[in-house]
Design a protein around this nucleic acid. Structure first.
Lengths: 204, 204, 204, 204
DNA sequence: GATGAATGAGGTTTCATTCAT
DNA sequence: AATGAATGAAACCTCATTCAT
């Protein structure tokens, strides 16, 4: 958690810092990212940095929090909370869609999340022994779908959750590629869901 | 490319070096991995390291090459070369299966590949502007499947290839998790293919 | 010397500051002691600190003064002022006893004095080229004893004064050790004086 | 413990480093002493320092060891080992004398020892919970003197040992003062012993 | 007078790479 | 070819002190 001094800062400055941090952490893996560069880019003294944050990790954790918070804000909470009104695939579609919307609005956050997801060492350093929350979420959703009767009861939720998670990253990666940003989301999502829902085999 | 001196080394020594390198790069992200540790663990002088390799990146690139080579060796070449004899899903199954076999036989290589895949900075540093070879492979396979008439012609091969790739990583990750190593591969593969082939929707 | 602002402070606040300072300087050697901690612990702003004191050294000097003043207050002034009424060893006993009383009443001040005494660099930084006042005091006392005829005229006052000073520190250290605080002072003092007395008293 | 690289160094260089270290640690308390200065003064790169020593503390510990070793070498070992041939006061005299000889030959080491002795924090950091070895030595010597019948059985060895230790420091301090270095040691020692002897010897 | 943010010099330590033997 | 010492840039972090309100 950043120190109070950070939160007492004028918003404009706080944003400059967060902005600089995002740029640096997006460009380099955690251990390569340099506090000096962040401070310089934010236009603050190196010493000031340490009046705002405990240390580099403190800032990074905070960034993660911001990211999670922001990401959650993209989810249609009405849907999540009263999910019994929706079918499993509707929910899944919403989840993926919110992911895309988030990624499009916050393209610089995406690489940070990606790096985080693949650096287990770091992940544990930051979140302790927590499981991967994302996978967990999908697992629960699948169990729910099974209960609902829309998901094949024979599938292994652990495995499929992992797949859904992996696909989610792939999806984001796909739309992030240059020139694809203005693609029609609906088309992509629908292709993907079609893929998930029915498989890709040509039916006769 | 390692220098000639490296290839003139007695095989035993060469292996010790590669082994040490794998251990280090498996344990730490590229920039965290230390040349010193590799040299120490391989039982060679730090100076010698630079007589064998241009620099750290040179070794890493070589490791990647070895890995790709080894990974390819797991693929049933007969199948690939005369693919016209097989259906698309048979081929896909073989690809995934070879991935699993490779991962099980070379568990220490897996994390290196994972890290590599998610560090684009590094990827480009190493491979220049090359596309992702893995995704490319799946794309071609899909095109082939389309031509063969087994794959829905409406799908976007770029997107689906990305999905298949992501799922491949997820799959490896799944079987690498503790306690899952002695799982029956066939079961997993089949679940996954079932997923891909038919989707996960419960059919009535 | 602290600035006027310091002395204009309400006593309660002044005490809080001094208290915090004592804690910090007792716990860490001068250069390790942190202004920040003192300010925090005293509940004042860091900026305020510099409105009260020129700098860290200024506070420390002042602390030393307070300490000396307090220490002197433990000496039986009647004895010192009309010392002709007392024998040398009575006076010495009183000096040591006052030292013990002071130490027991102000245990947190003791380590500060100790540190100070052994850090010549610091001592000179603070007191300039002044001699050690304590040693000086003992020297004068010894001269007096000689004049009085109770102290062996053959001894070198400079040397013995140094010894007496050293023993004084050792004595304090001894009674400060855990569990010794409630020891019977008289016994210790008497043992010690017995030791000193036999050592330097004039024999007939 | 310094690393092997340090011991593999040519003696001349090793000495330059130790010399520089002694100078720095003699001039400043441990936490004020700067690795940079030591490296500069020794004419080595800062990086090299860390090839020789684990860190600053490592060097300091080593210095302490050297000091103890050197100090011990000044003691007449014949006397210590067959102490039954000597009287307590003869032994004590020898101990003090060796202390003086050591101090005179190694004046730069003296302040280091002094600082160490008075910085308990540091002492524990380096020696763990060990008691003060010096005081302990005197205590044993006193017990021995009691057994021998030369030391007053009524004295408290713990207290007197502390005194003897304190006096030892005072003594060294005394002869170290400018202009006193060429003083006649014997005279000082004898004065001091006379002082001690009359203080604690067993009376008949 | 009080506040607390801002500063930046300086400290320790790491590590890829070069150099001398 | 092999060694391992030497190097120095660069990283993180601390803290006394100044500054602006």
């Amino acid at each position: 958690m950043p120190k109070d001094t950070f939160f007492n800062l004028p918003e404009e400055k706080r944003e400059r810092i967060i902005d600089a941090a995002i740029d640096e952490f997006a460009a380099y893996p955690y251990h390569q990212a340099r506090v000096t560069v962040i401070a310089d880019q934010a236009g603050i003294a190196k010493g000031s940095f340490y009046q705002y944050f405990e240390d580099k990790k403190d800032l990074f954790k905070y960034l993660m929090e911001l990211m999670v918070e922001k990401k959650l804000s993209y989810i249609n909470h009405d849907m999540v909370e009263s999910r019994e009104k929706y079918g499993f695939f509707q929910l899944l579609r919403e989840v993926y869609l919110s992911g895309i919307r988030f990624a499009k609005d916050n393209p610089r956050l995406v690489p940070i999340g990606m790096k985080m997801a693949s650096d287990k060492e770091l992940y544990h350093e930051i979140y302790g022994e927590h499981l991967d929350k994302g996978v967990d979420f999908f697992k629960q959703l699948l169990e729910y779908g099974k209960g609902q009767g829309t998901v094949d009861p024979a599938i292994d939720p652990a495995l499929v959750a992992k797949m859904l998670m992996g696909m989610s990253y792939s999806l984001i990666d796909f739309i992030m590629e240059d020139g694809k940003l203005d693609f029609d989301d609906m088309k992509i999502i629908d292709q993907m869901l079609h893929f998930v829902e029915n498989g890709i085999k040509k039916r006769v």
